[in-house]
Design a binder for these strands. Structure first.
Lengths: 134, 134
DNA sequence: CTCCGTGCAAATACTTTGCAAAGCG
DNA sequence: CGCTTTGCAAAGTATTTGCACGGAG
């Protein structure tokens, strides 16, 4: 490899790209996106770091969509929309579950709720247009 | 095999067990549960039928949890709670997302929303007790 | 005979892991 | 030097698929 680009350089890059995109990438996507700048990057490293980020809470998993896990560098509370046509994952920042509803469920079932994953499925604007054209 | 238990018998059994349990099983679980009664059942058949059920809408996927897809024979609208300790998946029948909220999001983003997957993560009553004991 | 459903095993797809080499302080 | 991070390739796990056979109409 070139010279001295080890240590956290790659890790930072992985984290950076996660925070700098809104596409909710897969490990593969991150790998491909970083390869030009880090030609010797390995997919295993991407997986390892993504896992680490999730465990430490710096990154959040959107869930497994079409067999691949998608990640999100934005850990603030928000929901997602998955287009069943193109597979795109989009953000929904409007709150959808009232706080008191969660508290109520915790009380009724005696659950301790830590996080919530809200996923809407349907057709995104672009794909609605495309379908209309065909 | 015994004699004449082919055709849709196994398919019915798979569907039946999905509707008759509340554990939100994986393919593997269904396979194990049915093996005593259908010793020649194959895992591939379970996967094939689960997929078919999901496509036809008779069964719903709860999502991939700990690397395995979980299914639900109850397709009425409800949410789920996943215990991060034991992995259990429990039902929440209280509505959590107000209808009008969904309509509002559809309008604002121009999405066409077909389904929603609501997943809460946390600790179930049993595991809270177990953790308290340790 | 034809079609559908199946068992079995091979093939995929995604992700994890062991190990030795290399970076940083 | 000791600890961390990585590349690489092998291993692992979950799921899908090809093919030939068996049962139903």
């Amino acid at each position: 490899m070139a010279a001295r680009e080890n240590f956290s350089r790659k890790r930072e890059a992985i984290y950076g790209i996660l925070c700098g995109t809104t596409v909710h990438p897969t490990a593969e996507w991150v790998y491909e996106a970083l390869k030009p700048d880090y030609p010797d990057l390995s997919l295993g490293t991407v997986y390892r770091n993504l896992k680490k980020f999730c465990e430490s809470g710096k990154v959040r998993s959107v869930g497994v969509i079409h067999g691949q896990e998608h990640f999100d560098g934005d850990t603030t509370k928000h929901s997602h929309f998955v287009c069943t046509e193109c597979g795109r994952v989009l953000d929904i920042f409007e709150p959808v579950v009232p706080e008191e509803k969660v508290a109520e469920i915790e009380r009724m079932h005696n659950f301790r709720i830590m996080t919530e994953d809200i996923l809407f499925n349907g057709t995104c604007p672009e794909c609605q247009v495309n379908k209309a054209i065909e």
